[in-house]
Amino acid sequence: MSFADTASSAGQGQDRAKLFETLIRTTHAQAFQLAYRLTGSRTDAEDLVQEAFLRAYRFFHRYDETLPFTSWLYRIMVNAHIDHVRRSGRLKTSSLDEPHPETGGGWDLPDESASPERLLLEGAMEAEIQDGLANMTPDFRIAVLLADLEGMSYEEVAQIMRTSIGTVRSRIHRGRKQLRRHLLAKCPEKYEKLCEVL
């Protein structure tokens, strides 16, 4: 939903707080999805989404209403994520041999003996892909997720990352290579099996 649609459905002449509340309600799930893939942790994703909305609300008067709200929100979220990564050094990664950090139990991994189609449908290799994303260079991870998960064009990614289309192209190329190397190193058989059906 575009900003104009949201503003229209929320009622003309409403105050900014009411409008922003509508924007939170319509975009928070999508924002959480990206935040979760950026951080690799549901708890960190909640913090990142909250930080992004807090910053967005503080500077809402600067928002250009002709642009999609999510693009502006993602730009804020990406900056907050980079700030966090710089402060903490790197992302937390978890070993699949250890208990799940949030549930304390085991990892819900798909059965590797299942057919490739079924593996794909069940979100096979999710843990390995998430681990690969966490080990990627932050700028590459952001570019790949915006393009592949969010389906954004290079121009939109460039606007969010405040860089040129050429740089976005390079980051996506190198990011995908990093991720592929990671999957080939961690689970070559499963990766090759999935490649056959992709």
Partner: peptide, 17 residues
């Protein structure tokens, strides 16, 4: 190879908040 990586990332399951 590159196309498979793109598809794998795009096929990551939704994680509801």
């Amino acid at each position: 190879r590159h196309r498979s990586v793109k598809k794998l990332v795009a096929a990551l399951p939704a994680s509801p908040p």
